[in-house]
Design a protein around this nucleic acid. Structure first.
Lengths: 342, 342
DNA sequence: ACAAGAATCGTAAACGTTTACGATTTGCTT
DNA sequence: AAGCAAATCGTAAACGTTTACGATTCTTGT
């Protein structure tokens, strides 16, 4: 409630000096500087957000734009908190505040984004759930609002972006499966236009070809977004001719459905179908143990924030469009859901 | 980028009239009103957030304060999105914007909250993860910042609050278990000072007593926050003398660990240990089917927002401190994780 | 045609902060 | 002691919007 004028009156100095003292400007006496800081702490003065934003033209607020799919679900619901925390850990050190934004399910995500931008509500944005042709990217570029994306797109404009190395995951998974004698390897991905999906499909094709295995288009299957997507997936897989002996997945919930679907058919994970993909902490609750890749999501948040910062200081992003997909560390957790075929 | 002065110049009328037209004030001609709206749409004018906030003294921003536990986990990580969406669906109709706030793990949640409040960043707050003695409540009350809480506390000050009826869930669960012949019923709750925990414990004691069953203190067990909390829980339970035949839980991840823990000991869910509690969509992926209560979280969001709104218009909350815990609907999903003992 | 009231609009102050500019004081050099 | 630069501070404008107030025009009843 106490404003800067209260503070100035209380100290019997001018408003301008108080402001300069608080912002640690050079042309103010050290004595008064500390006196002001002391009084500010005592009176519990905190600068008013709106006043400061209007004067400086910057809000010190960064928006983390979350996206839900058509069913109101979010792929990254369990990811989100960690990434947010990582981002915030670096942003707070620069006096910036992070907020999560979620477009209402009743409103088109694009118009929601435009509202945010036009109101100048944030100094910068971080976009998630990047689509293959993501119109938001060129839009933000036109509005010259600093932003970064968690994921790349065909419409990239040189903004800093960061991707989890799902490409590498597929490559490594295929290598592991082949080493265990698998050749009939399916790829199960949720139906969507996320660029991640395309990246994984391409990696799948490329790495199978590299190993001299012909791609069976039937082995690339779309899974339902629903919770028993895994169950129906299993039903689909076991009807294929020939029947795949392994499946690579990306949705961290899916394996639970797969396990269930296998059980319903009297099959056991690993033995009758090898399963490998990217998971979260939930994965360690499956029996038999699920083989999966786990990313350091806090680190993802840290890195995207650090990539975003320079673009906010009118310094261009140091290394524009640098491919940094390998930079987020992940570990492979070797479970029993992959079986040796030999 | 276009401001209200651009708009005024373009239409050759005064700034004041433009503002009044946009805000649909009565003392402006219908013709000019529509002319202004048209031009605003064409030029893509959206009022600047900071300017408006400074002038009106209100930001039109509502903050949803999320809390993580000591491990950086959030009990409601899967809940969050739905609740957020529900809140936003009603708030947008009143021109209000919802943002999610998460205190950095490096910063004390209380000081983080004080920053938010003192900066007048939001018009109102919704608090979650309410503790038994939650200091934030009296603090917000002192700052007379409108707020509501998802959960009640001993320190309530008459703010609107809403609780999921975990009390009723425990009551119903005990009734069902007793009807199936159970009498050695355990209660497994995560270690925390959330008020929810106390409510469930009290309900547990009360309803067991009502049924003439003596409370065995050993049956109230604390679970680890970690992911294999369920596994260790099982190890704890099967060593008890006498050994409980059923367990009531609240953490939606826990059953996965319980199932695994039972499997490790050659036991099967339902048959050797009946399991019932509150779950999310994940629950339907367990085999055998998990008996659980599922809440309508979107509705929870809608209701808390509707309760918050009147307090923001200087109208006091219509029915202060009204107990509305029964108002969020939930359904019981009957699975095979409860077995008949008779 | 005239006065009174209603309708409509322009003017300017206000919100809380930052910052360019100029004024005053201080300290140093000779 | 005079002069100059550096240090320190006060003044006032500016950010973009809202709104109280007053001024002007329009309508209406006589």
């Amino acid at each position: 409630m106490t404003g800067i004028r209260d503070l100035a009156r209380h100290l019997d100095i001018s408003i301008g000096t108080v402001s300069r003292a608080l912002n640690d400007k050079p042309d103010v006496n050290q004595d008064t500087k500390s006196k002001v800081l002391k009084a500010a702490a005592e009176l519990g003065y905190v600068p008013n957000q709106a006043g400061r934003a209007l004067s400086k033209g910057r809000t010190n607020v960064i928006g983390f734009v979350l996206q839900t799919d058509s069913e109101g679900m979010m792929q990254g619901d369990l990811f989100f908190i960690r990434v947010f925390d990582g981002m915030q850990s670096v942003l707070t050190q620069h006096g910036l505040n992070l907020v999560a934004l979620l477009s209402p399910s009743t409103v088109d995500p694009e118009t929601y984004l435009k509202q945010i931008v036009a109101r100048r509500f944030t100094d910068a944005l971080v976009l998630s759930s990047i689509h293959r042709n993501d119109a938001r990217i060129s839009y933000l570029s036109d509005q010259n609002l600093p932003f970064a994306t968690l994921g790349r797109s065909l419409t990239d404009v040189g903004q800093p972006w960061l991707d989890l190395d799902f490409d590498g995951v597929v490559e490594d998974a295929i290598r592991r499966l082949i080493a265990k004698g698998h050749s009939k390897i399916a790829l199960a991905l949720p139906r969507s236009d996320l660029n991640l999906r395309h990246i994984m499909v391409e990696s799948y094709r490329r790495n199978l070809a590299k190993s001299g295995i012909e791609v069976n288009e039937d082995f690339i299957v779309e899974t339902d977004a629903g919770d028993n997507g895994g169950v129906t997936l299993v039903h689909d897989l076991i009807e294929l001719q020939p029947r795949p002996t392994a499946v690579i997945y990306s949705d961290h919930i899916l394996p639970f459905g797969i396990y269930r679907g296998l059980a319903e058919n009297g099959l056991t994970p690993g033995q009758d179908l090898s399963i490998i993909g990217v998971g979260t902490r939930l994965a360690s609750l499956l029996t038999p143990n699920l083989s999966h890749y786990r990313f350091n999501l806090f680190d993802l948040g840290v890195q995207i924030a650090e990539a975003l910062l320079p673009t906010m200081q009118d310094r261009p992003f140091s290394d524009p469009n640098k491919i940094i997909r390998e930079s987020v560390p992940y570990t492979f957790i070797d479970g029993d859901s992959i079986q040796d075929m030999t």
